[in-house]
Design a protein around this nucleic acid. Structure first.
Lengths: 158, 158
DNA sequence: TGGGAATTTATGGGCGTCAATGGGAAATTT
DNA sequence: AAATTTCCCATTGACGCCCATAAATTCCCA
């Protein structure tokens, strides 16, 4: 599976439809999938999205690995119950469910943010704010970043 | 994987296209890849580039961080959302996204600088300036060159 | 080893396709 | 029937694909 990358700004049309960025479509189209999964981010007032296969993987990890405390498990369970299937039309567009739209303060415009195996949908101004925040937090903690990135260097050929 | 080496000066044509140096193409063509990844350098007003497989490796490292930790979250947001897929045409050319062009003050001409596992795209005059600076810094620190090489390796690995 | 042939590279331009967006008509629902 | 959803078609600008060419590079063979 290709990774969800980059940032896109799209408009919601009068009928409430919005295009999933073409590069995102190719991230979920292994079996010409016409569905995505959307849910409320538990951290921020944004919508989280991913492919169905991602949900399957997370589910397996929770079952097999015992690394989650009861508390976290409950947390995850509550997230799963909020997952929604969302269909894409023949042009690759979809409609954001009302409750999610409200949760993320989304009106006419949406910013898609790629996060590797998932993506976020958010109100454009809030998206910029979040990107700035995480960038500056990363810069402040530069040393942690370097250590982590170079630690496993030898495992990879490039 | 072959390393990105050397320096090249290429022109942007009327349609906004520019050739990826042939030697760079052979660095990403493991599976006849026709995509590169571009993003704003964290350090300078230049564009950074690499192969997709390099991003996959970084992704794997980030995945090893705790799920839902602020650390992982900030990495995902600040790194992946800033990366852009850029396709090469059948002649090995690509178009530099407008926001990156603006960030690096690029107009008609571009200097490619090989950096081993990645490369940089910059405004030609700025490229010369940067090369002079780093050359003189290296001369000043001649005695500690060996030590610095291993240290710098990590700095440039992202 | 030299020098011409074949290939590759950097660059140019035409044109068809696709992406993002808009809107109407048919199908479904209440 | 009114409202919502699904399917189909339209538009515009950007981009991919194709073909072309001149310069540079590599290859080959005498």
């Amino acid at each position: 599976m290709k990774l969800f990358l980059s940032t896109y700004n799209y408009k919601i049309d009068k009928k409430g439809r919005i295009s999933l960025p073409a590069s995102f479509r190719s991230c979920i189209s292994e079996k010409k999938s016409t569905e995505i999964i959307l849910f409320k981010s538990f951290k921020y007032k944004v919508i989280e999205g991913c492919s169905y296969s991602r949900i399957e993987n997370i589910s397996k990890r929770i079952e097999q690995l015992d690394i989650f405390s009861d508390e976290q498990d409950d947390f995850l369970t509550s997230i799963f119950s909020e997952l929604q299937y969302v269909k894409l039309d023949s042009e690759g567009r979809f409609t954001i469910p009302d409750d999610l739209k409200e949760y993320a303060n989304i009106n006419n415009e949406v910013t898609f943010i790629g996060l590797g195996h998932s993506f976020q949908l958010s109100e454009p101004k809030f998206a910029i704010q979040r990107q700035n925040e995480s960038r500056s937090r990363n810069l402040e903690q530069k040393r942690t970043l370097k250590t982590n990135l170079s630690k496993n260097k030898n495992e990879y050929s490039d």
